[in-house]
């Protein structure tokens, strides 16, 4: 059932974007300076917009409406990585996470724009334009914080140490993902991982940061989550679930 494996893949991509956008939106009104409050909200809006496009494709494949998928699923049914569900932490943590994710998105989208699936290709082409800018912005931030003051450097290193292993989950293939790779619908995650590693290591090193060497065990099932996701969902879903699905808001 190639369609089913495609749907699963699309759902995991949508969930990653959505949860990250949700987390980043928590900075609105609380960022270190006004200009960046606005800039980071743009990134959050983009990620939510990308999630919307992928959820729409998921609906085309399965019939499931995006708002039902988002607001009426329990934690075990979500397919996002643990990386994106972790609380926003300090500015270094959110920025490092966004950078690691943006590099992954960029190396992935570079290839998805050539997908043999026309809808995947179409969505990837649109998203990629925004992601090029994300990476420019977060790269610049990582460099400045990495090389800024002792404090900013220490905070960045701490964030990186914590996030690195979580980021590697982005490259754990789903069940049946091989079928999609064989048909050139999605790129091989092994290749993506190499491309990601090269880009992140180069930029992080140039930013004065050390790549963590001791890699903890990488979470490997997207159905498994930290306790933070349940908490996040309680907040996310409380208004929608105060009524049956189908009531308009």
């Amino acid at each position: 059932m190639p369609n089913n494996s495609l749907a699963n893949k699309i759902l995991s991509v949508a969930d990653d974007s959505f949860i990250l956008g949700h987390r980043n939106s928590e900075w609105a009104g609380h960022a270190p300076i006004l200009e960046e409050d606005i800039a980071f909200a743009n990134i959050a809006l983009d990620e939510l917009g990308h999630a919307q496009l992928w959820y729409e494709l998921y609906q085309e494949l399965t019939g499931a409406e995006p708002d039902r998928v988002i607001f009426f699923r329990s934690a075990a049914e979500w397919r996002n990585t643990q990386l994106v569900e972790l609380p926003k932490g300090d500015w270094a943590f959110s920025m490092t996470r966004q950078f690691l994710f943006d590099v992954y998105e960029n190396v992935s989208l570079e290839r998805l724009v050539h997908s043999t699936n026309p809808r995947v290709q179409e969505i990837a082409t649109k998203i990629r334009t925004e992601e090029i800018y994300h990476l420019r912005h977060t790269s610049n931030w990582v460099k400045r914080l990495g090389l800024g003051t002792d404090e900013s450097h220490a905070r960045m290193q701490r964030a990186l140490d914590e996030l690195w292993t979580y980021a590697l989950q982005l490259f754990v293939p789903l069940e049946n993902e091989r079928e999609l790779i064989a048909e050139n619908v999605v790129p091989d995650l092994g290749i993506l991982r190499d491309a990601w590693q090269e880009k992140t290591v180069t930029h992080l090193s140039a930013s004065g940061l050390q790549i963590p060497e001791n890699i903890d065990s990488v979470p490997n099932l997207r159905a498994e989550h930290t306790e933070h996701l349940a908490e996040l969902l309680q907040d996310l879903q409380q208004v929608a679930r105060s009524e049956k699905f189908g009531v308009e808001w």
Partner: peptide, 28 residues
């Protein structure tokens, strides 16, 4: 801003975040 995480649909969530962001822009 306190309700962005609790918006009941994806459309409302995006709209509310864009509005709160705009208010930041107005302050700017």
């Amino acid at each position: 801003g306190a309700w962005i995480t609790r918006a009941p649909t994806l459309r409302r969530k995006i709209t509310l975040l864009a509005k709160v962001q705009d208010e930041g822009g107005h302050g700017q």
